[in-house]
Design a binder for these strands. Structure first.
Lengths: 251, 251
DNA sequence: GCAAAAGTGTTGGGCCTACACCCATGA
DNA sequence: TCATGGGTGTAGGCCCAACACTTTTGC
């Protein structure tokens, strides 16, 4: 049975790269935990990372920005390409086709595809999750509770987290994970959530203040049933300097 | 004028991925400097990085290994995927076609390709450089003397070096750049060559010995017009432990 | 003996870690 | 007044950077 040649156009009828896709691991931070944005495929209980195809008319970085924009509504985002996945058997093709046959056309499905992985850090509060044409739900999941995902997406997520941790250890991160104004404990909990370990609050505060990437505001966060914490914001100039200087910023 | 659809087979008549290539930055270390393996295109004075296409029947990591094998004759090599290059205009297509029209068929040339970048560290002394079907020379170049390369290969090289430096700063490196037995000054010069900066020999020695990744041998290197340096070799068990533990190894 | 490169030790300072109590607030 | 979480200082040790002279060897 001759296999139909898969179309090289996407849903907007744009020419795309064949056998190539792009997957995004979108991290948000809320309620003291790190979260990931996942999509639930139509008529199933299966979840996957958001992804898409790369148009012939766009840079791959822009493809990632477009996909993020479509899923989150956000424009300005922190985005990193972290790895390209290209094993022959990234996942069990037959299994995927049987799980998703009512959504995808098995005839137009590539036997093999290579996927470029990006991760993004976004401000949880500003995201309006938005499913795509294959999916009917787009939701935040707590990192530790992420279920078994379609394709090799658990592996991609794992590698993204590893890359994020590595990046965190030599660069300032968090500009996009926290609101504009934030408290020191919020920032610390973000670091703890990403690193998956506890940090001493005294040492953390000293290090962050020493680095100069945040500015203490003359404001406190009120309305909490305990001492009102100070508010801070990032010193964007200093932050950029460290980022661009390849500077060290070890936590 | 309708454009012929480029063939999706490579020179061994293997099905390959369309619009996708793989470029390798092969680093060697000799004579106190870091070197890169470059290819000179047939009938020209133009140089490029070694690269190739990815077969449908191989993992991308294996494609990189194959390409390296073909160019260097080496089997066991240190290899890292570091970035995927996918801007629309990675380089000036017309310029490339005019420079290489006698080697490549402009009709079978893709307007646009995405390239996956790998870098490798190899033992300079064991390499037998070997041109491919497009090129008639394969040679080591001193890093600082690399000329203007074809395509966007200067940029790829720059990014590879940056990734290597980053990796060097948190992982032990050098197992593949040095001969089996080496002296401390040789190892130090390798670090200096990669980092592009001077290191204090006393501090370097202390740090390396403390880390436990090398074993001091009861041998010296004779035949030099000065004090005979001690020989060392890597403690492969310890080396692997640090690599896998994601361990720190800051120089 | 001379030129060239190897080998080696100490000190001071800064940074990192470990550690616990009081304070402000809303309920 | 109580419960909750925020805010803060110090001491010890380790690691890091800076620094220069002596040794060995071949010629």
């Amino acid at each position: 049975m001759p296999k139909k040649r898969p179309s090289n156009k996407d849903f907007d009828n744009e020419e795309v790269f064949p056998q190539l896709s792009l997957d995004c691991v979108i991290f948000g931070f809320n309620d003291g935990t790190l979260k990931v944005l996942l999509l639930k495929w139509k008529g199933t209980e299966y979840w996957s990372l958001p992804g898409g195809l790369i148009r012939q008319s766009e840079d791959i970085d822009n493809a990632a920005i477009r996909i993020l924009q479509e899923r989150t509504g956000l424009g300005q985002i922190f985005l990193r390409q972290f790895h390209t996945f290209g094993k022959i058997e990234r996942y069990d093709n037959q299994k995927i086709i049987s799980k998703l046959s009512h959504v995808i056309d098995p005839e137009s499905w590539y036997d093999r595809a290579i996927s470029i992985g990006y991760y993004a850090l976004v401000d949880y509060a500003e995201v309006f999750p938005n499913p795509d044409q294959f999916t009917d739900e787009c939701q935040w999941w707590i990192l530790e509770e992420v279920p078994e995902l379609l394709f090799d997406h658990n592996e991609i997520l794992k590698k993204a987290l590893h890359s994020l941790r590595l990046e965190l250890s030599y660069q300032p991160v968090g500009y996009n994970l926290l609101s504009e104004k934030f408290t020191m404990p919020e920032m610390m909990r973000m670091y703890e959530a990403i690193l998956g370990s506890k940090i001493d609050p005294r040492n953390f505060q000293k290090k962050i203040l020493n680095s100069g990437i945040v500015i203490k505001l003359n404001e406190v966060k009120k309305g909490l049933a305990h001492k009102s914490p100070n508010l801070y914001m990032f010193d964007k100039v200093k932050y950029q300097q460290i980022l661009e200087g390849g500077g060290l910023f070890i936590i």
